[in-house]
């Protein structure tokens, strides 16, 4: 008895737990109504994924030079840019960077002062209404957790595999697709309106394959050659293309939303390794104790 039977039951339990978790899903979480979003190969994806420091630094540059003109990141403290596992700038660089910004401080003379490393990223607009006024009525969302506030929807039953691969990169995949999903004119394959008339793009909107409803207020933010990357010390250069920029800034946004990803996974490996070994010992002990008892 014992061994084989118990192991089989154990497997049944594990399978059942996985099944319960698998069936349990917001399957229709988001509908983009556009082409299927292509999943990218992210350095931080999968079990062993970690952030690519160089990519995060480039992504930060794109964010700073382009995105941050309209988008805030109110939860991101300058100091975190120096943290290991992230862009990992030097403390000197971060201090100098913070000092380039003025931050609101009611206790300071005149209500503002130079930023320090402990300050949060200053928002480009004082109020939401100011932001709307400057952007044709649309509110540019804050970037702090945006990469986790967006996702990719897989059709049934394919999302079940996500629970086993730990797929958590739906946000960056969506953002990357969005950045590359602009059309100068409404494409011929655009979905028709409910009444059958051709898709009509409202005034001041742009057509995007991946944006829900396709009419997005944000003009195409990135263009080839827009941001100048500094070549690496070894002379290696990275293409200055929209695709590259969007990959880099998506990675940086994922870091902003989940700055502790690397240390979390590192701890996870230790925990899982411990649990598997511990479970083995527990099983051996359990068998030993139950030896001689018919059950």
């Amino acid at each position: 008895m014992g061994g084989i039977v118990s192991m089989f039951k154990t497997k049944t339990i594990l399978a059942a737990v996985a099944l319960v978790a698998a069936f349990a899903t917001p399957a229709f979480a988001q509908e983009h109504g556009g082409p299927q979003i292509e999943k990218q190969s992210w350095s931080f994806g999968g079990l062993f994924g970690t952030y690519d420091q160089n990519q995060l630094q480039r992504g930060f540059q794109v964010f700073r030079e382009v995105c941050s003109n309209c988008h805030g990141a109110r939860l991101i403290a300058f100091r975190t840019l120096a943290e290991e596992g992230g862009p990992h700038f030097s403390e000197g660089q971060v201090k100098a960077l913070a000092a380039e910004y003025n931050v609101a401080d009611a206790t300071a003379e005149g209500g503002t002062r130079k930023g320090v490393a402990a300050d949060r990223w200053p928002s480009p607009f004082a109020t939401d209404q100011d932001a709307r006024d400057a952007n044709g009525g649309a509110l540019p969302p804050d970037f702090s957790v945006l990469a986790k506030a967006r996702g990719v929807t897989d059709a049934f039953p394919w999302w079940i595999t996500n629970y086993f691969t730990g797929y958590s990169e739906g946000g960056p995949d969506y953002i990357h697709a969005l950045m590359n999903g602009y059309h100068e004119e409404v494409p011929e394959n655009a979905p028709h309106n409910a009444d059958g008339t051709p898709f009509a793009l409202p005034e001041g909107k742009y057509y995007n394959d991946y944006f829900p409803g396709h009419a997005i207020s944000m003009p195409p933010p990135l263009s080839d050659g827009q941001v100048t990357y500094v070549p690496g010390e070894d002379g290696v250069t990275v293409p200055e293309t929209t695709n590259q920029y969007s990959e880099d800034v998506s990675a940086f946004m994922m870091w902003m939303a989940e700055p502790g990803l690397v240390s979390r996974k590192e701890t996870g490996f230790k925990v899982l390794l411990f649990l598997v070994l511990f479970a083995g010992l527990m099983y051996a002990t359990k068998r030993k104790i139950w030896q001689g008892i018919e059950h």
Binding site: A18, A21, T267
Partner: peptide, 13 residues
């Protein structure tokens, strides 16, 4: 084990 899997590798899934 599955509990830890979700916590450490896909906490938001």
């Amino acid at each position: 084990i599955p509990f830890a899997w979700f916590v450490f590798f896909a906490p938001d899934i």
